[in-house]
Design a protein around this nucleic acid. Structure first.
Lengths: 123, 123
DNA sequence: ACTGAATATTCTCTGACTGGAATATTCGGG
DNA sequence: CCCGAATATTCCAGTCAGAGAATATTCAGT
């Protein structure tokens, strides 16, 4: 992870939305895809992009791939993750996404889904 | 100026170097060019790029164009300008550039150059 | 009007990303 | 072993940004 990589990742709205989601905790691809309402390949490619640039890490559990913020962080990255909250005015969708995230987590708990619920389990 | 524009500008080393310079005060193109030791067209194009994205403003004085940080700022931009100081380890050139900037300003004062010295005059 | 300094723009080529569609891969269950 | 779910990758076409070289523009001084 380096400064240029960080900024390259941050200059796309979809990637900002993803970071806004995973900053609250790990999520698997299908969850992100469902919350963003974007095509699977699109989401997967952006996740791979950010993973290649060192911002995200992933782990496989059965058929699911869980993405989370990279352990080894970077001051610029930390600082800009905090900035995301200030951008709610500019990206109203951030709040909508987070609401959808909470709703999804609740549903998964209720259904006792076999899909990994990152809120409850760490992989 | 909006968040995406800001990040698009920040993800290039030359542009970071330029911002690192002008955050300490306005400079004209020839100064920036001299400090960075980069071709004129390259510098000019990156300045235009950042101006078009709203991060910089310019004013013309005679034959010189002075660039400065845009008046109307943005929390993300402010925050990342401050980050530049933390990046000295990653971009040792930042410190070199600032030293060259100070040296240049001194020389211009000494020579009583007709070229606008932003430290002394505002246009 | 001509010259030179300072700056901007244009052209061409190239590399990096994007999106959509399709295909491949991996894995658990029957 | 086949199927479907979850995910990744590939292919293709389009756009954007970068570099270098060349040219254009603007302006002050002679």
């Amino acid at each position: 992870m380096n400064t240029i990589s960080i900024y390259k990742c941050l200059c796309d709205p979809i990637r900002l939305r993803i970071l806004n989601l995973v900053k609250d905790g790990p999520l698997c691809v299908c969850h992100i895809q469902e919350i963003l309402e974007e095509p699977q390949a699109k989401v997967s490619k952006q996740l791979t992009y950010m993973k290649n640039h060192g911002l995200l890490e992933s782990s496989r559990c059965c058929n699911w791939t869980v993405y989370r913020l990279a352990e080894a962080s970077h001051p610029v990255f930390e600082s800009n993750l905090k900035c995301l909250q200030d951008c709610q005015g500019e990206f109203p969708v951030f709040k909508v996404d987070l609401a959808a995230r909470r709703k999804l987590i609740l549903r998964l708990k209720k259904e006792e889904s076999s899909c990994p619920i990152p809120e409850l389990t760490r992989w």
